[in-house]
Design a protein around this nucleic acid. Structure first.
Length: 427
RNA sequence: GGAGAGUUGGCCGAGUCGGUCGAAGGCGCUCGCCUGCUAAGCGAGUAGAGGGCUAUAAGCUCUCUCGAGGGUUCGAAUCCCUCACUCUCCGCCA
């Protein structure tokens, strides 16, 4: 959410930012509502001031025993109250409409973000590692996984529906090893670990920006709760409606959770394999930072996510998303893309975003620093995958496959696999 | 799920028969004074949101907010209703 006053006073700037994003947002309608809202506030409040003064007077008259005079004043105020009630009603409607609009405006891209129409405008920042070269025909994970008995697509469909997968035996073990490995590495780098509900209420999802605009992407329960699409939602909302002390910033949190996505608009994309599924595991990183440090913290977060890939020996590249490809809440986003032989290219495995004060304003997350400024200010929130576990598992299988159909376990994971060095097909 | 108790400012806590209560007192914090010593004392200040005026700033003023929403009233933290949450006891359960 953006500050209504900021939008009003920087309308041309906002228009340009929206255009850069390719976003369609009714600026004119907002300006009309905003002007009407302020007019109604002024009118209502001036009447309320009169009423309050009269009420005090009545109190004094009653005390003095002049009941007749008090009664006359009462009659006058009663008429005023009808006007106030009507104005109140009008104001409530305009207020709600304004807020509704503001909840659907996307964040403004940071000035360092390249302007572009879609993913073709993204800019590669760096590469790490060398994609493996095979002297045999490498298999895609959707063949390799079932052959090894570690991924079972058919049974995922049987148990739930299409785009759910089952991991079996060494696949389940590898998955768990990856989660533990990631959490341990992030802990070493100062991230505090949390264990969180997999369901969230509407306020929580509004705080991070999934609601009201993207409800169709979420699974919803009959009680009106939602399955979380990412732990970002829960980690960020931990501090909703709180005022933090500047001395605790930056706060660095991490959590492993399953993530659930309806993927309503993704029909036909990545249909093979487990790249795009309804439920997947992810280790998430979230930071709360001051405005002064948030961009630097974003760089640090990307480095923390990269560290996992480096430790696993997986080749990747980092791209900065252009204005037309960024997520709704983000002011700046880096994607990390891992090399996948089945794609013959790099595929997103992490997305790290600096949401600036966009989520903090929605969720009311502030901080205080009496030595520097009076009152409180919104913090900056950041989030990033560290990493998407399912896609990491896919990357390990595909990149570490051997001519005999087995897969070598990356050294960093072996302590988490009871020392196991290789995944071989089950007899 | 059943019964009872509660929800006030950063924290604790008082609010009498509804009126000058945005709210005593304490703690904490900030600023100043005093004091030759890691303390104590004295004084002042210290909620948030949103309008308007002015505007580099600072400030002035108004409105709303005492869990949320609604009602009664000229006027409600104080009375009534609904809901949410917390705690205690019971039940159920991994």
């Amino acid at each position: 959410m953006l500050d209504a006053k900021f939008v009003r006073e920087n309308i041309d700037f906002v228009r340009q930012a929206l255009a850069n994003r390719g976003a369609d947002w009714p600026v004119e309608r907002f300006l009309e509502l905003d002007a009407e809202r302020r007019r109604l506030i002024a009118e209502t409040e001036s009447r309320q001031a009169v009423r309050n003064a009269a009420s005090k007077e009545i109190g004094a008259l009653m005390k003095a025993g002049d009941h007749a005079a008090a009664h006359r004043r009462k009659e006058e105020v009663r008429a005023l109250n009808d006007e106030i009630a009507a104005l109140d009603e009008a104001l409530a409607a305009v207020d709600a409409a304004t807020r509704e609009l503001l909840l659907t405006i996307p964040n403004l891209p940071h000035e360092s973000v390249p302007v572009g129409p879609d993913e073709s405008g993204n800019v590669e920042v760096r590469r790490w590692g060398t994609p493996p070269e095979f002297d045999f025909e490498p298999k895609a994970h959707w063949d390799l996984g079932p052959e090894l008995g570690v991924i079972d697509f058919e049974r995922g469909v049987k148990l739930a529906k299409s785009r759910f997968v089952v991991l079996g035996r060494d696949g389940a073990r590898l998955n768990r090893a990856l989660i533990n490995f990631m959490l341990d590495e992030h802990a070493k780098r100062g991230y505090a670990e949390w264990s969180l509900p997999a369901l969230a209420n509407a306020d929580t999802l509004t705080g991070t920006g999934q609601l009201p605009k993207f409800e169709e992407d979420l699974f919803r329960t009959s009680e009106g709760l939602y399955l979380i699409p990412t732990a970002e939602v829960q980690l960020t909302n931990l501090h909703r409606d709180e005022v933090l002390d500047a001395s605790v910033l930056p706060l660095k949190y991490c959590a492993y959770t399953p993530c659930f996505r309806e993927e309503a608009g993704a029909a036909g994309r990545d249909t093979r394999g487990m790249i795009r599924v309804h439920q997947f595991d992810k280790v998430e990183l979230v930071k709360f930072a001051t405005p002064e440090t948030s961009l630097a913290e974003l760089e640090g977060m990307v480095a923390d996510a990269e560290h996992i890939l480096q430790a696993l020996g997986l080749a990747y590249r980092v791209v900065v998303l252009c204005t037309g490809d960024m997520g709704f809440a983000s002011a700046k986003t880096y994607d990390i893309e891992v090399w996948l032989p089945s794609y013959g290219g790099y595929k997103e495995i992490s997305s790290c975003s600096d949401c600036w004060d966009f989520q903090a304003r929605r969720a009311s997350i502030k901080y205080r620093d009496p030595a520097t400024f009076k009152g409180s200010r919104f913090v900056h929130t950041l989030n990033g995958s560290g990493l998407a576990v399912g896609r990491t598992l896919v990357a390990v299988l595909e990149n570490y496959q051997q001519p005999d159909g087995s897969v070598v376990v990356p050294e960093a994971l072996r302590p988490y696999m009871g020392g196991q060095e290789r995944i071989v097909p089950v007899g």
